[in-house]
Structure formats: C-alpha cells, structure tokens
Amino acid sequence: MADEITVTVVDDHPAMLVGIEQWYADAPEPVRVVAGGATSKTAWLPPGDTADVVVFDLQLAGQAAPALGELRRLVDAGRNVIVYTMRDDEQTALTCLDLGAVTFLTKTEGADHLVSATLAAARDRPYTPPALAGALSANTNSDRPKLSTREEEVLVEWFQSESRDLVAERLGLSPKTVTTYLDRVRLKYANAGRPARSKAALVARAIQDGLISVDDL
C-alpha cells in the first residue's frame, strides 16, 4: 500500500476520467486514482488533497481562459501537478513549466506518456513528453536556459519522432543517453524562473540520482 501511487484527476470530461483510470490499471507499477472531478476543488478536498500527483486539465468547463491561477495555487501548495490539456501551443507549455508544473502533456499524446509522466512525477523525476520538448526547442524567450547543441538536437528530434529509439539511431546514441539529455534539459528549466517546491524537488532528486552535480547548477 505504501508503494502505491495515488492520483487526483481534474478533468471535466467523464470519459477522460474513466480512460485515465483504465490506463493506470495497466501501469507497470500500482497507480490508483483516488479522486476525480470537474473542478480543482477535487484536488483540495479529501480524498483528493493528499494524492501524490494531480493530473490537471487546464481548460475546464465554463472557463474561457486556461486555469493558470488554479495551477499556480496547487503548485504553491506543494503539489506535483501534471498539466494534461488539449492546448498544443508552446507558450502555454512554457508558462505551465515556469509556474512549476512537473510536466506538460497534450491529450494527443496517449497512455504511455501519461503513465510514464505520473510515475516520474510521484518520484520527483523529470519527464519530458514530445510536445513539451517541441515547446522547449522553439522557446525564444530571453530567459531561456542555455542548452548545448546536442541537447537542442535531442529535443527537436524527440518532438519530431516521439521515439527514443529513432532519436538514438539518428544521433548515434543509446536510448538511455537520449533520456539523460532530455532530463538534463528539463532540469535546466527547473533551475530557472519562478521558484517552486516541485522544481526544487526535481533538482534535488537529480543530484541524488547523480544525473547532475551541484557544480552544474
């Protein structure tokens, strides 16, 4: 029971809730949806308030604008929030990341990415799905972290192919190295912009895992 990952899903489409539960049922590690609802209240009230991970739809019913304020409040309360949305534009992705969302997934990215992202988020490990990688590679904001040429290549190609194997093939790397590059990029972003508990946790965990050293910061 202690190893079970608990999830709160905030999404206004009942079918999405059912689908997500189904996806988690097939996850390689036990993941349980403890609460699901159409508004962010679900994540603040028991039983949803103690879940390890919040899967959060930015575009909730009855709201014209994306619920960035809600996202900020959840992040500031120390929650691990995965933004899961129909929106596919990079500015939203970058804003969510800066606010402190652990990752940004679009709904066109299927089950594998959501499950992997959830497992990673519960353990404060980075996960960069292709849509987010694309947003990071096209980021031209002046406060963008400095990336190496190889990191840029991996980002673009991961976005293009959605396949670690293909990126590895093209760049002559192992799939594991591809993941390492993606993680390092994600950490550079975690280390930039607005401070948040989730970002600090990502960086701390990466140092523990030996992914980066304190000197890299």
């Binding site: 694309g134 096209a138 031209t140 673009v156 293009q160 959605e162 293909l166």
Partner: peptide, 17 residues
C-alpha cells in the same frame, strides 16, 4: 504519419515520420 514543423531563429525544420 506524424508531420512536424519547428521554427527557431536558427532554422526551420519540417519532418515527417
């Protein structure tokens, strides 16, 4: 097929998988 377009100041990339 997956088609992507990535536009940065340095390059424009059109990819199809």
């Amino acid at each position: 097929a997956r088609a992507t377009v990535v536009r940065t100041p340095a390059a424009i990339r059109v990819s199809v998988l």
